[in-house]
Design a protein around this nucleic acid. Structure first.
Lengths: 187, 187
DNA sequence: CCGTGATTTCAGAATTTTCTGAAATCTATG
DNA sequence: CATAGATTTCAGAAAATTCTGAAATCACGG
């Protein structure tokens, strides 16, 4: 690997981080490299930059494509495929959330649903099912919330984030208004 | 492994899922088992239930403890340590969020900060730094939002979740009110 | 402070994952 | 449709991780 020091540090860190997630070191490094690169890179550029085998890069790019984390760009008069990352970081966040949900949450949800359909054969299983129901309930709330907010445009989403816990003040205000209206009606 | 079928399915699924995260199969299984168990289990109970070695269970429990995902319970007149999971699923969610942040987000944030302090040595590094700044900005927004909402009591948090994207309507309403007030003042 | 049982440690075995190089396949062009 | 360059596949090598059993340590009651 022979990269400008700043870029190298970032790439190495991402590689390590990658292995703390499900993705392996090389995949993390490829992603990081593409992320900071000012222009799309072809597979050989990556081989050169990271010092790993051509086939490893091919597999890594493949995996990143299944994650929708890299895009294929064609450079005029060059037969080779070139790759970039989506350049809007919010877009990246969305993609990441979507993919992780698909891989980590959805399968669990469907197993839970299935197990909750079964008739428990003992007290032990009855208790287990109650616990599964709790977990299922929580995950379902989280995912419907996610389905909701993921539709927001970036700007609104950013506004929401910026507001943070202050939303609860809005909520309180709303409750008060609703309370007042109810009170008046009931009077 | 010799468990009631419903429990076994859950335990096995969690084991598989575990390896999609950073934790290994056994750790996932131990967690799942404790989660559905009606009473605290000791290490030997787990060995028996999962059919893995005693030392493996010891290491697994250790790891789960560093994640704050299992609690030690003492059973009167029994020298052995017994373990459970926190029983409120919201609590579990909080713990999980906190730990993942600590392990996956914080280190990245600090690397980014460090790299952003450096003086870029070339156009390439300059561009890279700009990208890092974008990433840093996004992550920072997300974490401050998280720091904010994690302080909410469960009930408020649930209310917020239930509201989902509808919060934006509240936001719009607020904007309108503020706008009116401003308009009046300026007039 | 000894003995008993619970727990942890740790070196190496077993397993899984990652990576490579050679061969196969694909694809645009003359 | 032959060729050359680009890309992918895949079997096995290399590396990393997980798991085990034996030994060490710990901790409590007598």
């Amino acid at each position: 690997m022979n990269l400008p020091p700043l870029i190298q540090s970032f790439v190495l860190h991402f590689g390590e981080m990658g292995s703390r997630w499900g993705i392996n070191r090389t995949v993390g490094q490829i992603y990081a490299l593409l992320y900071v690169s000012p222009r799309p890179l072809c597979a050989d550029d990556i081989v050169e930059a990271l010092g790993v085998s051509r086939s490893n890069v091919s597999m890594g790019l493949r995996e990143l494509q299944t994650w929708n984390l890299v895009l294929l760009k064609h450079i005029p008069n060059d037969r080779r495929d070139h790759f970039t990352t989506p350049d809007d970081v919010w877009q990246i966040l969305r993609v990441l959330a979507e993919e992780r949900k698909k891989r980590e949450v959805d399968p669990t949800l469907s197993v839970l649903r299935e197990l909750l359909m079964q008739t428990p054969g003992s007290e032990e299983e009855k208790h287990a099912q109650a616990r599964l129901a709790e977990m299922h309930g929580l995950i379902e709330r989280l995912t419907t919330w996610y389905e909701d907010v993921k539709r927001l445009e970036t700007e609104r989403l950013a506004a929401l984030l910026a507001l943070g816990a202050k939303v609860t003040r809005l909520l309180e205000a709303k409750d008060k208004v609703v309370g007042l209206v109810r009170g008046r009606k009931e009077a």
